[in-house]
Amino acid sequence: MAVSEKTCKIVWAEAGGRCAICRGEVVTPGTDCDDPSVFGEEAHIVARSKGGPRAGDLDDASRHSRTNLLLLCSRHHKQIDDQPAHFTVERLREIKEWHAAWVRRLLDDSVSGDVRLVPDPAFPQPRVLELITRGNPLWNMIKTSVTFEYALPDGLPDDEDSSIVEFLDLLRDYLDIAPELYSVRDNRDAEKSLQEHIRELVEQDFLVGAYVRHMLYVDGHGAPMAWPMLRVEVLPTSAAVVTDRTGRPYAAEQGEEQLAEE
Results as ranks from 00 to 15, higher is better:
149 E>P: 07
133 T>P: 03
124 P>G: 01
129 L>S: 12
130 E>P: 06
153 P>S: 00
118 V>C: 10
129 L>K: 03
120 D>T: 07
148 F>S: 06
146 V>N: 05
118 V>D: 08
137 P>K: 12
142 I>T: 08
130 E>F: 00
124 P>H: 05
142 I>Q: 07
122 A>F: 02
131 L>S: 12
132 I>K: 13
119 P>E: 04
144 T>H: 08
151 A>W: 08
140 N>F: 13
139 W>M: 10
122 A>N: 11
134 R>V: 01
153 P>N: 04
133 T>N: 07
146 V>W: 07
141 M>Q: 07
136 N>A: 14
126 P>I: 02
152 L>N: 00
144 T>K: 09
124 P>T: 15
127 R>Y: 03
141 M>D: 04
135 G>K: 05
125 Q>L: 09
149 E>W: 00
126 P>D: 15
130 E>V: 01
143 K>D: 01
120 D>N: 14
153 P>C: 00
133 T>G: 11
137 P>E: 07
141 M>Y: 13
121 P>A: 02
123 F>E: 03
136 N>C: 02
123 F>L: 04
139 W>N: 11
127 R>A: 10
135 G>D: 08
122 A>C: 00
153 P>I: 04
120 D>S: 12
128 V>F: 01
119 P>N: 03
119 P>Y: 08
150 Y>M: 09
139 W>S: 15
148 F>P: 10
145 S>Q: 07
121 P>T: 08
118 V>P: 11
135 G>E: 08
145 S>K: 14
142 I>V: 15
135 G>M: 05
128 V>A: 00
134 R>M: 07
123 F>W: 06
140 N>L: 12
132 I>G: 10
135 G>R: 04
118 V>S: 09
123 F>I: 06
136 N>Q: 13
118 V>W: 04
140 N>S: 13
152 L>C: 02
120 D>V: 03
126 P>M: 06
144 T>G: 05
129 L>H: 14
135 G>T: 04
148 F>V: 09
151 A>P: 01
128 V>R: 00
128 V>T: 11
148 F>E: 12
150 Y>G: 01
129 L>M: 11
121 P>Q: 05
129 L>Q: 10
130 E>I: 05
139 W>G: 00
146 V>A: 09
153 P>T: 01
125 Q>V: 04
151 A>Q: 08
132 I>S: 05
122 A>T: 08
144 T>I: 12
142 I>E: 10
138 L>Q: 13
144 T>R: 14
151 A>F: 09
141 M>E: 05
140 N>V: 10
142 I>K: 13
122 A>P: 02
120 D>F: 08
139 W>Y: 13
134 R>T: 09
148 F>Y: 15
152 L>I: 02
148 F>K: 14
135 G>F: 06
136 N>Y: 11
131 L>F: 15
126 P>L: 11
152 L>D: 02
123 F>Q: 08
127 R>N: 00
132 I>D: 10
120 D>L: 10
151 A>D: 06
152 L>A: 02
131 L>I: 14
152 L>W: 04
130 E>G: 07
